[in-house]
């Protein structure tokens, strides 16, 4: 091998080795991923086997359609009054339970167009205090405050989330049953009940197993 080439080869090699270091090539998304706006019923790139936004949207949409189809609501002479009772979570996933009923209520209110009315029991304390202020004459009243006008419930709407989970070397599997029911406040009869079920499974990266 000629001398210049013999002495130059390692130099070139060294330069190539060092040169390869001055780059961030191979690093995926070094500057991050732009914020992506998604539909709430769309599966995002951050996912688990738990209860997610798209599940909540799908379930409440289905329940709202189902409730509006029953004769007690669709053929009622006067819009029945419904009180929402907290959902019971019997899964392994801590969830914001109110969000189910809030979305169900907003769906029903927007789709039912007055077919059903909801009683705001969350505000009862505030409403009672206001009524007392009116009765004592501390604030003005547009109607006789001594007449009881707080509405009584015709129906109670509530739900329950039940789950079953499995974890093995093959992965994680979660089944969640979402059930909702409408109970007649006078007779205690369940006049409507429906459910939806979602099962998910996956296996995490080996780096976390």
């Amino acid at each position: 091998m000629p001398l210049p080439l013999r002495s130059g080869l390692p130099l070139l090699l060294a330069a190539a080795l060092l040169g390869g270091c001055a780059t961030s090539e191979g690093v995926r998304n070094p500057s991050g991923v732009p914020v992506t706006e998604m539909r709430p019923d769309e599966r995002g790139f951050v996912a688990g086997t738990g209860i997610e936004a798209q599940d909540m949207v799908a379930v409440t949409d289905r329940m709202a359609r189902s409730i509006l189809g029953i004769p007690q609501i669709s053929r009622a002479a006067t819009p029945p009054s419904v009180v929402l009772e907290p959902v019971v979570n019997n899964t392994r996933f801590p969830v914001n339970k109110d969000i189910f009923l809030t979305r169900l209520r907003t769906q029903l209110n927007s789709k039912a167009a007055g077919q059903v009315s909801f009683l705001d029991r969350d505000l009862m304390r505030t409403l009672q205090r206001e009524r007392e202020l009116k009765r004592s004459g501390q604030v003005t009243a547009s109607a006789d405050p001594n007449v009881v006008e707080f509405g009584g419930a015709d129906y109670f709407l509530t739900g329950k989330l039940d789950g079953m989970s499995t974890r093995t070397a093959a992965g994680t599997s979660d089944y969640v049953l979402y059930s909702f029911r409408l109970t007649d406040a006078r007779t205690s009869r369940i006049v409507w009940e429906d459910s939806a079920e979602i099962k998910k499974q996956g296996l995490e990266d080996a780096a976390y197993r």
Binding site: V27, R28, N29, V46, A47, G48, T49, G50, F93, T172, G202, L203, E204, D205, A206, A207, Y208
Partner: peptide
Amino acid sequence: LGGLILDDAAAA
């Protein structure tokens, strides 16, 4: 912690 990390560059 509640999610599954899949197809993640850092994990790879």
